Simulated assay, not measured.
Amino acid sequence: MLIDTSTSRPSTQTTQAPSHMRRHDDAPDTADLFARLANLEDGPERDAIRDQLVKAWLPMAHRIAGRFRDRGESVEDLRQVAALGLVKAIDRFAPERGAFESYAVPTITGEVKRHFRDRMWALRVPRRVQELRNKVRIARRELTQTPGTPEPSVADLAAHTGLTEEEVSCGLEALESFSTLSLDAELSGDDDGYSLADTLGATDSSFDTVIDRESAKEGLRRLPERERAILYMRFFEDMTQSRIADQLGISQMHVSRLISRSCAQVRAEAMGQRGRRGTDGRSTAV
């Protein structure tokens, strides 16, 4: 739903109170319109009065949206959000509650704040962390109002806000979570510029090899000398099972069984499960 936010003045059909009775220039006297709205069923007449109320109070919604400028969202988008909050306030307001402005201001403000909380964060963070971020942001602004003032430390911010240093640090980290930088963003303005993605490391498959080797060492040490020799000839000298069998004077089938059994035992050792062993501490090879 898009609302025309270009209107900055109330409709000429709106009943205006004398200027000396207004709290602001954009607070029109619309009590009669609200009274009529409350007594109408859904239909063209109710929609027309509702539109008049929106146009009459839209400048106030714009003013509230302006309080949130310079926070990473365009003013026009903020005005749209505030206008939606205004529509909600008009639909929910009951004239017996008192002045519409007293009800509408917190309703519109809450709608804009929810927009920042739910739609503007690049990373989803808990509401408590968002509140810490806001306190830290306001404190930094207050402590650096004087030109030339150095950036406040964590301790300075903690003393100013009444938060702990840990909470301030959490709020400072959240300040960096509000927006993200594309991996394709150029980090250098010259011809040899590079992107953020170029600074990221790649996965080194050798780490897995090192981990596997270290995990297998103890299991290999526990193998009998013949089984260790067979594994060495098979996996490090790349000898075939038939050639190993001829060199050791045993059958190729026996070599195959010893390799399978030794590998299973080493794997069990690496996984923290001791393989089945004979009572003399040797493998139960046949």
Score class of each variant (00 low, 15 high):
residue 204 D to I: 03
residue 197 A to D: 13
residue 164 T to E: 14
residue 208 D to Q: 11
residue 196 L to F: 15
residue 172 L to H: 02
residue 168 V to F: 01
residue 157 L to R: 03
residue 223 L to V: 09
residue 221 R to P: 02
residue 200 L to K: 14
residue 157 L to A: 07
residue 192 D to F: 02
residue 198 D to E: 15
residue 169 S to A: 06
residue 210 V to G: 06
residue 218 E to H: 04
residue 222 R to H: 07
residue 166 E to Q: 07
residue 165 E to P: 01
residue 220 L to I: 11
residue 171 G to Y: 03
residue 154 V to C: 04
residue 156 D to M: 00
residue 187 L to I: 14
residue 156 D to C: 00
residue 175 L to F: 04
residue 215 S to W: 04
residue 173 E to D: 15
residue 197 A to P: 03
residue 171 G to Q: 06
residue 208 D to K: 09
residue 173 E to N: 14
residue 175 L to P: 01
residue 223 L to C: 10
residue 153 S to I: 02
residue 160 H to C: 01
residue 219 G to R: 05
residue 154 V to F: 02
residue 212 D to Q: 11
residue 195 S to E: 15
residue 219 G to Q: 09
residue 188 S to D: 15
residue 161 T to E: 03
residue 174 A to Y: 11
residue 153 S to K: 01
residue 214 E to M: 01
residue 150 P to C: 05
residue 214 E to F: 00
residue 201 G to Q: 12
residue 198 D to M: 10
residue 206 S to R: 08
residue 216 A to M: 09
residue 211 I to V: 14
residue 198 D to L: 11
residue 183 L to R: 06
residue 221 R to E: 14
residue 167 E to G: 05
residue 204 D to G: 00
residue 191 D to V: 05
residue 208 D to F: 08
residue 177 S to G: 07
residue 174 A to T: 13
residue 220 L to P: 00
residue 162 G to K: 05
residue 149 T to P: 00
residue 166 E to N: 04
residue 222 R to K: 08
residue 222 R to S: 05
residue 200 L to S: 11
